[in-house]
Write a protein that binds this DNA or RNA. Structure first.
Length: 408
RNA sequence: GGAGAGAUACCGAAGCGGCUAAACGGGGCAGACUGUAAAUCUGCUGGCUUGCGCCUACGGAGGUUCGAAUCCUCCUCUCUCCA
């Protein structure tokens, strides 16, 4: 390939890398590096890290995961780094208090499910999968101290999250200061050319550049991406805020959750999640932003696209039908799980609890009193009523159903 | 090491001897309404009990009192200032 054609390819690739990004630090350095790499036929090493601090990855993570996939499509080497060591420290980024410490077992368990979840979006056989415990568990204290000597406390306290906690008299533990150093050192070990992340990771990602320089490496480029807003339309998506859609959520649930997104957030979601796909929907959302289009129809399309990406089109079709049937037409779902109770006749409250529709009898009573319970199609207002032997359909609220078979 | 301040339910935050299963806000759940599991409005939001009622709960352990989240003692943890 001639130099001129290589340069064209470099430009093409950089354009893909820039897509959807907020900041691209070290872009010009990367352009030069990319040129020589293409010439030499050596792919870039592209790092994306995630700490297994919770069992679930969510749609917010998918934004950068899809970006990682695009690097794979460009012929580079994606590295998915599971921060099993860093999860035991706890990333302080954006936190208003320290993360709870996780045991090694919890971390290991979460890490296992991460691979399954990433596989929903990327062919994991084609990526490098690493754990930072591999080198961090073996690091000597002297080396660790040397690593930490590359940064200052003042610099740390300039970070907004720490500054706020410090000013608000919320404890900052020393180990939380260590986190960015470890994440940065990972880039040294992995010899990363590029690191991807959300904008909340900017500090940690840039620290990677500094530490790489301190260890005699060329600094990685850093590409940050916007944080996906959660289902509340206000805060960033986060499991702990309860506004997230897990990558492993079942299709019907995932579809319904997308439908609960405020109208105002639809366009942003589409833009961030499309990652080069969903062309028609992207166009339609743009028209909608100018006041043209039905929000509910568009939201259906968005929900469909999201479910299709993670569960395939068959499941997406079913999820859409289910939503129309159960939520919009308020009919019973096609399939309702059957619960067998071989306990003889009993009162409604007990059946609700036994069928898993209520966590306690007190809660079941409240639901009945509020008119939330339907028995065989009729609203049940008496929690003490006896349920006769046989099969019954119970509904609680709009979307919790159970078929109960009671036998003596 | 010294001197103060603080620890309340899922979260934030009142209460400072009985009227407190604990104000208020958020979250969650439900109902109404609707174009959706949007928005808005309303209600509920420890457990057991048909019910009277009982049990558990205000960092931990003791104590004072007819009675404590509220007073005392010790302990644990955090914050601030000083060294």
């Amino acid at each position: 390939m001639g130099d001129a054609r290589i340069q064209v390819e470099v430009e093409r690739q950089l354009a893909v890398m820039r897509e959807g990004a907020v900041d691209f630090y070290g872009e010009s350095e990367l352009a030069r590096r990319l040129f020589t790499r293409i010439k030499e036929g050596r792919p870039l090493r592209v790092k994306l890290g995630a700490d297994p601090s919770s069992p679930d990855l969510h749609l917010g993570h998918s934004v950068v995961l899809m970006k990682l996939r695009r690097f794979l499509e460009l012929g580079h080497t994606p590295i998915f780094l599971i921060g099993d060591f860093t999860a035991r420290i706890g990333d302080p980024s954006g936190r208003n208090k320290a993360r709870p410490a996780l045991t090694a077992e919890q971390v290991a368990q979460n890490a296992r499910t991460y691979v399954d979840q990433v596989a929903r979006l990327i062919d994991v056989s084609k990526i490098e999968l690493r754990f930072n415990g591999e080198w961090m568990d073996a690091m000597k204290s002297t080396d660790f101290v040397r690593l930490c000597s590359q940064g200052t406390v003042a610099r740390m306290l300039e970070r907004e999250d720490f500054a706020k906690r410090h000013a608000g008299e919320v404890p900052i533990f020393v180990h939380e200061f260590l986190y960015p150093f470890v994440q940065a050192y990972d880039s040294v070990v992995l010899e990363a050319d590029v690191e991807l992340g959300g904008t909340d990771q900017t500090f940690n990602l840039l620290m990677g550049r500094e530490i790489q320089k301190a260890y005699g490496q060329e600094p990685q480029a850093v590409i940050t991406h916007p944080l996906l807003v959660g289902l509340d339309g206000k805060d960033k998506m986060s499991k702990s805020l309860g506004n997230s859609i897990g990558l492993l959520d079942d299709p019907a649930n995932m579809y319904g959750k997308v439908m609960s997104l405020p109208d105002a957030a639809m366009a942003t979601w589409t833009r961030l999640l499309s990652s080069g796909q969903w062309g028609e929907l992207v166009d339609a959302m743009e028209r909608f932003a100018r006041g043209d289009g039905e929000p509910m129809v568009l939201k259906h399309d968005l929900a469909y696209c999201v479910v299709e990406r993670l569960h395939g089109s068959t499941n997406a079709d079913e999820a859409r039908d289910h939503f129309r049937r159960v939520v919009q037409r308020k009919e019973q779902p096609k399939e309702i799980p059957l619960v067998e109770l071989a306990s003889g006749e009993k009162r409604l409250l007990e059946v609700l609890v036994d069928a898993g529709l209520a966590p306690s009898r007190a809660e079941a009573r409240r639901l009945v009193e509020q008119g939330a319970v339907t028995l065989d199609g009729a609203r049940a207002m008496d929690g003490g009523m006896m349920i006769v032997l046989g099969e019954h359909v119970l509904q609680v609220g709009k979307r919790r159903f159970a078929r109960v078979r009671i036998s003596g």
